[in-house]
Write a protein that binds this DNA or RNA. Structure first.
Length: 615
RNA sequence: GCUGUUGUAGCUCAGUGGUAGAGCACGUCCUUGGUAAGGACGAGGUCGAGGGUUCAAAUCCCUCCAACAGCUCCA
């Protein structure tokens, strides 16, 4: 059974709960305004030409950054400024000073900024020689209101050194404030009156963790008061769609401190949502000839040593689980913690030999080898499903007639994410991938990649999620990170490129973004506040079949190496549901027969949201 | 992990050193031919955890934990 969509494509029966008129309406919902999404600090300098192309609003915001710096200096003259670019919806300036800015200071700074705007200071460009620039920085004059003996402009000095020889060095002056700056700026500070400071945070100089820690104040600025107000209205609207807020209101999921950070408890309502999606994808998988499998949540360390995930990715995995008797033994032997860790991380000489032989070169160095009686094995919460699926493929001899073998599982994996990076459903420590691994011949790669992509496209189109882009991750030829032989890479990259081109959506090729084992295609979806989330992914892999010594018998009755394709159209159920909640703003497409609807009066508060969710 | 902010009832929040509060939600009863109806009464809190200062701490100080924003990272 299928229903028509506006694209005229058949809609899978498993989304039978989708009311066509609702789907249509939702698909046309305009994407909400983007909240401040800081542009990643580019490690490459912009050329003067690129700078000259700054749009009017970027000019205004950049000037606002200078005005904010001026205001901060009037209040705290010791401040040392680093970097103050315009960003989407606003600007920031990074600086270092004794006083720690808190949001309570914003009012003071804004008041000072307003004064500066009223003073209508002229922004004046001055070309200066490298020597003069350095002298001004030494005296503390650059990024200051006056000379500041004993307080040289340290960051400006560094920035001057980064300006290539022969390039014009310039500064801009407004009032007493002189800053090293290539511009461009607005003519007068009077233009910068619709400004509001939004947040303060820490940053690192040049985005480098090892460099100085700076304070960063963010602000937003627009040409008119109306636009500024509209911006804050949009932010409010975006907040209402936040999946964490809706998740609580609609009782979709719960995160409990006692269970742990980043570990999702799916409550009955959320389980309905997730189950519908799983049914939907299961149906598509069945159509495309996948086989469903189930595998356990843990596996032995040696499995991940063979795959190469341990200890290479050790920092982003949960620690090993050591069996009681083994633990008692090492305690009895008086092992220190460091020694236990080393014994867990070691690899046997035999396994090292096997891996190196299979790869035809040294992929595991001798320093990781420990004598067998020193090795301590344990288990690990699985950080990915591939090794388990590989073992299923390898559990019996395979003929080319069976290929491609497509093994699918809603596989739950666990990864150790930094605490500051956790975010509702979109960044978690335990999540379920709609994972599958395809084992195919070299010649089947292109067709299989194409099949995977069409699956992702069906999923996204069915749900009306059209604000996405496609990223083809290619290898960086200069990097040693990428293993495998160049011809295979070329072939796989070409297959990915060609497959992406058939999608009919813009895609970018990004050298250096490939996984170490092969090229990949990612679907990146923008959420309601402009953050991009990588959801679906398709990756070609030539490495794991080698490490696990996989083979099949070809028509020539000889053994051949299969190619693996990893793919997950949703990415993870958690992240996808998070993005989906915001996409639909909680107005999930449901039909009359949906369990979300038929609720007795007693549970009025419960059914309310499915009929008339909070707007 | 780093910087900052926040943490009080199921939810949203008020409460600046002196007996723990409001609205909504919840329970019982009454009213009411109807989809967030009205009324009466009621229940619900070691004020994130632990320590300290004080005659006295939700409130001041310290240490943790967690959430949020940003940075950094992300197979």
């Amino acid at each position: 059974m299928s229903v028509a969509t506006r694209e005229g494509e058949a809609k899978p029966a498993c989304l039978s709960l989708l009311r066509p008129e609702m789907a249509l309406k939702l698909a046309h919902r305009p994407s909400r305004a983007r909240m401040r999404a800081p542009l990643p600090m580019s490690t490459e300098r912009k050329t003067l030409d690129q700078r000259a192309q700054m749009s009017d609003i970027e000019r205004l915001r950049h000037s606002c950054a200078h005005i904010m710096a001026t205001a901060i200096l009037r209040l705290w003259p010791d401040a040392q400024f680093a970097y103050g670019p315009p960003i989407e919806n606003g600007f920031y300036y990074d600086f270092q000073m004794q006083h720690r800015i808190t949001p309570d200071d914003f009012e003071k700074i804004e008041a000072e900024m307003k004064k500066i705007s009223k003073e209508n200071q002229k922004f004046e460009w001055k070309g200066i020689s490298r020597e003069d620039a350095k002298a001004m920085a030494e005296s503390g004059r650059l990024g200051g209101l006056s000379e500041r003996p004993g307080n040289p402009s340290i960051f400006k000095l560094d920035l001057i050194d980064k300006i290539p020889e022969g390039e014009q060095i310039s500064c801009f002056q407004n009032g007493d404030f002189i800053d090293l700056c290539a511009g461009p700026h607005v003519g007068y500070s009077g233009k910068c009156k619709n400004v509001k400071l939004t947040s303060v945070s820490a940053s690192f100089y040049m985005g480098d963790e090892t460099k100085a820690s700076l304070q960063r104040v963010y602000g937003t600025a627009f040409e008119s008061k109306e636009e500024l107000e509209a911006h804050f209205v949009r932010l409010e609207e975006a907040k209402k769609r936040d999946h964490r807020k809706l998740g609580k209101e609609l009782k979709l999921f719960h995160i409990d401190e006692d269970v742990g950070q980043g570990l999702i408890l799916w409550t009955p309502n959320g389980a309905i949502l997730r189950q519908e999606l799983q049914n939907f994808i299961s149906e598509e998988l069945r159509k495309q000839g996948y086989s469903q499998v189930f595998t356990p949540h843990i596996g032995k360390l040696s499995l991940y040593k063979t795959s190469g995930h341990f200890p290479y990715y050790k920092d982003s995995q949960f620690a090993a689980i050591v069996e009681n008797d083994d633990l008692a033994k090492v305690i009895h032997e008086g092992c220190g913690c460091g020694e236990v860790m080393a014994r867990l991380g070691g690899i046997s000489a035999k396994l090292r030999q096997q891996l190196n032989d299979r790869a035809g070169k040294e992929v595991v160095s001798e320093e990781n080898v420990l004598p067998d009686d020193q090795l301590l094995d344990g288990f690990m919460l699985k950080p990915m499903n591939c090794p388990h699926h590989i073992k299923i493929f390898d559990s019996q001899p395979r003929s080319y007639r069976e290929l491609p073998v497509r093994l699918a599982e809603f596989g739950t994996v666990y990864r150790w994410e930094q605490s500051g990076e956790l975010n509702g459903l979109t960044r978690v420590r335990g999540f379920t991938q709609d994972d599958a691994h395809l084992f195919c011949t070299e010649d089947q790669v292109a067709a299989e990649v194409l099949g995977c992509l069409s699956l992702v496209k069906i999923v996204l189109n069915t749900l009306g999620m059209t604000d996405y882009r496609v990223r083809v991750g290619l290898r960086d030829p200069d990097s040693s990170k990428f293993t495998g032989n160049p011809e295979q890479w070329d072939k796989a990259e070409e297959a990915c490129r060609a497959a992406a081109a058939t999608l009919g959506v813009p895609f970018t090729e990004e050298p250096g973004e490939a996984a170490f084992y092969g090229p990949k295609i990612d679907f990146v979806i923008k959420d309601v506040i402009g953050r991009e989330w990588q959801l679906g992914t398709v990756q070609v892999d030539y490495v794991l079949p080698v490490r696990f010594d996989l083979s099949y018998i070809g028509s020539d009755n000889k053994s051949h190496r299969p190619v693996m394709i990893h793919r997950a159209p949703f990415g993870s159920m958690e992240r996808f549901c998070g993005v989906l909640i915001e996409h639909f703003a909680g107005h999930f497409p449901t039909a009359r027969q949906s369990p979300l609807h038929a609720r007795p009066r007693r549970e009025r508060s419960y059914c309310r949201w499915s009929l008339c969710p909070p707007c």
